[in-house]
């Protein structure tokens, strides 16, 4: 039962990581990181599908992880702005 989603998740994971390394801009880096984390979530939730129903614990983990990522990204964004702001 191979579905496409886990592979997409992994691809996002690797691309996000690559973007993080290659991009110069801090905002790009942060977005790359978000893609990277989203890749993990997509992978986790799609790989845990069985009989077309997502595993409840995996879903809960992803939801929790999403919220954590949200908080982290918001903080990171603000740090980046502070860094640019301090430059001025």
């Amino acid at each position: 039962m191979l579905s496409l989603y886990p592979f997409v998740g992994l691809a996002l994971f690797v691309l996000g990581l690559l973007g993080f390394i290659l991009k110069e801009s801090l905002v790009h880096k942060l977005i790359s990181l978000n893609i990277f984390l989203s890749g993990i979530f997509l992978f986790l939730v799609s790989q845990s599908l069985s009989y077309e129903k997502a595993d409840s614990v995996a879903t809960a983990l992803v939801l929790t992880g999403l919220v954590v990522t949200l908080g982290v990204s918001a903080f990171g964004l603000m740090l980046i702005r502070a860094s640019y702001g301090a430059k001025r």
């Binding site: 994971f13 990581l17 993080f20 880096k29 990181l33 990277f36 984390l37 993990i40 992978f43 986790l44 790989q47 845990s48 614990v57 995996a58 983990l61 992880g65 982290v72 903080f75 990171g76 740090l79």
Partner: peptide, 20 residues
């Protein structure tokens, strides 16, 4: 921030793999 985020991201991926 970036270092720690990547670090915990990797850890999260490993957790996902172990769980799966």
């Amino acid at each position: 921030f970036f270092a720690t985020l990547i670090g915990s991201g990797f850890y999260l991926f490993a957790v996902a793999l172990l769980y799966l």
